[in-house]
Write a protein that binds this DNA or RNA. Structure first.
Lengths: 183, 183
DNA sequence: ACTATTGTACCGATCGTTCGGTACGCCATA
DNA sequence: TATGGCGTACCGAACGATCGGTACAATAGT
């Protein structure tokens, strides 16, 4: 994907994650990107759905690069977890920016976008669980904690939005850290 | 509010919480309620916005009755927390049903509905904190745990949706219970 | 008879989408 | 070095469909 197009996708992603799939019109996208509606169809022949799915796939690749990779890179479980938390905090603007996956998971009801978003969330929990298993934590317990950590991240984002403050998110991240590093 | 109207509001609430504000059209509401558009405008002269705000106010009243009241009614902190958890588990169908407040908080971007939904989420955390303070837990710590519990509930709902299973939600609730009852 | 409630028909606006067409750069062939 | 064709990128205008909302007459319940 060219840099040019990646920038466009980035702009569209910011719309979708803040307003959900149905909350964003092609007019909005046109205004935000500076491209005419017909130009958007040049880049995304599949229309709005292709714009959204492209955005999701970019998010998937970002997760791979900025979340999963740090989760396997550190020299100790603590440093791996801290690496992920640091990345995640950056991605979500310290709690100020909504999660694209959660946004599409909720707003598309049983469409293909929601299915893919759900898949990525499950993958996320799975990768965390794998990191724990590599440290000798039993399989089911690792899975339990992985899911719990993702729940804390997502719940932290929602409460941070409700409180209009990054503090709830940061508290949730601290709790997730404790859960993941408990022995 | 008459029983008749309360039923209508309930049907509309189920639409909004599953698809968000923008994902529901008046046609959808008309089909789901069996009422023509004119009938809907008879009951809700303010249109879609009034339908949504009525739905939110009904949710507020339900929270008061089924969540806040149990939170003050038990004879021990443990029984109060368990009362709330039991009610909450029922309200969300064991994790299968999305949260109306979270749905509107996210899909309305900075509209009045999102503001009200956020207010109710903050109130929820506050009520939990109050229950903890009544047991001697220090103010800031009580507030921290209240917010954390709400985050676990909301995050549990999202992960449960991603996994298409009530299990993540139940795990999140169990964790919330532990957090709230810790000494 | 009166009021509450509803169905039918319709409104302008906006939705996602498609169309015809233009500008520009690359590359082959003459 | 011209020239003509071709692919990429973009645009304004318009499409049919649906959006939220309204006017009004008919019906139902008292």
């Amino acid at each position: 994907m060219s840099n040019q197009k990646a920038e466009i996708v980035d702009v569209i992603a910011n719309l979708f994650r803040r307003r959900g799939y149905d909350g964003v019109s092609l007019g909005d996208i046109s205004a935000a990107t500076g491209l005419g509606k017909s130009s958007l169809y040049h880049h995304f022949p599949g229309g709005k759905e292709e714009m959204a799915s492209t955005v999701v796939e970019q998010a998937a690749s970002n997760m791979q690069a900025f979340v999963f990779t740090p989760l396997m890179a550190g020299d100790s479980l603590e440093s791996r977890i801290d690496g992920m938390i640091s990345s995640v905090t950056g991605i979500y603007g310290g709690g100020d920016d909504p999660c694209l996956l959660a946004s599409l998971l909720s707003s598309d009801e049983n469409g293909p976008l929601a299915e893919r978003a759900g898949e990525l969330i499950r993958l996320w929990a799975d990768r965390i669980a794998n990191a724990l298993r590599a440290e000798g934590i039993e399989r089911k317990e690792a899975r339990r904690r992985g899911i719990l950590a993702v729940a804390l991240i997502q719940g932290g984002l929602i409460t941070s939005k409700a409180f209009d403050s990054g503090e709830p998110f940061k508290e949730a991240m601290a709790t997730a850290r404790t859960v993941l590093l408990a022995r």
